[in-house]
Simulated assay, not measured.
Amino acid sequence: MSTRNDAALDFLLTRRSRPAKTLVAPAPSRAELAPILTAAARTPDHGMLVPWRFIVVEKGAMARMAELTVAAGQRLGKSDEDIAKGRSQFDLGHLAVVVVEVQTPSPKIPAVEQCYAAGGACLSLLNAALAAGWGANWLSGWASHDHDFCKAAFDLQDNERVAGIVHIATEGPRPPERPRPNLDDITTWVSE
């Protein structure tokens, strides 16, 4: 058995995302973000394909992302409400890390495992930001699933897609705890 890390376990048992709309300035600097990205890059990675990469969207780029969201919503026939909600993450954003899933053809590592690894990078990034004392929230939204938006906003290639957009800034009002799943309802024990 490894050395027990009660502080890490307590953090994981009590961690809580902060709604992106409640995050306020300042956001982490590049130097403050570096260890958070480093921690996220330590995600389990079967076959060492590194099926993810990071795009850091700083405050100066948020208005362009919001406008691209509006254009995508109009092109896709989204309602005004959907467009407003889609653009709000950028209108209100201070810094976001786009975790990009990068699919690499592999005879050993199926595409689904690469997808899971990119999702793991999202969760590691979120938890590292929270552990570093920042407020953070993992979002996606309809625009992040639209190829044309992703190409225009993030220059994604055909083998790439957005796994998540993690907004990071200073924690604003603390949200109330939300209901969590009952462990007995989601756990099956196999003994024989």
Rank of each mutant, 00 (worst) to 15 (best):
A63W: 11
R64D: 03
R64K: 14
R64G: 08
R64H: 11
R64L: 13
A66D: 02
E67Q: 08
L68Q: 09
T69L: 03
T69A: 08
T69I: 12
V70E: 14
V70W: 14
V70K: 14
A71C: 06
A71I: 07
A71S: 12
A72R: 07
G73V: 12
G73E: 09
G73F: 08
Q74D: 11
Q74E: 15
R75A: 01
R75D: 01
L76M: 13
L76V: 12
L76P: 05
G77I: 07
G77N: 01
K78S: 05
S79D: 04
D80T: 03
D80R: 02
D80W: 02
E81G: 06
E81T: 13
D82L: 13
D82K: 15
D82Q: 15
I83L: 04
A84D: 00
A84T: 06
K85F: 00
K85P: 06
K85Q: 05
K85M: 00
G86D: 05
G86W: 02
R87L: 07
R87N: 04
R87A: 00
S88F: 01
S88Q: 09
Q89Y: 06
Q89I: 15
Q89W: 01
Q89F: 06
F90H: 10
D91N: 05
D91W: 10
D91M: 03
L92Q: 08
L92I: 10
H94A: 02
H94R: 05
H94N: 05
H94K: 01
L95F: 06
A96M: 04
A96T: 04
A96K: 10
A96L: 04
V98Q: 06
V98L: 11
V99Q: 12
V99R: 12
V100E: 01
V100S: 03
E101P: 00
E101T: 14
V102D: 07
V102H: 11
T104C: 01
P105R: 06
S106L: 07
S106C: 09
S106T: 00
S106R: 00
P107Q: 02
K108Q: 15
I109Q: 00
P110V: 04
P110L: 09
A111F: 06
A111D: 14
V112Q: 14
V112K: 11
V112L: 15
C115A: 14
Y116T: 10
Y116S: 08
A117Y: 13
G119H: 07
G119C: 07
G119T: 12
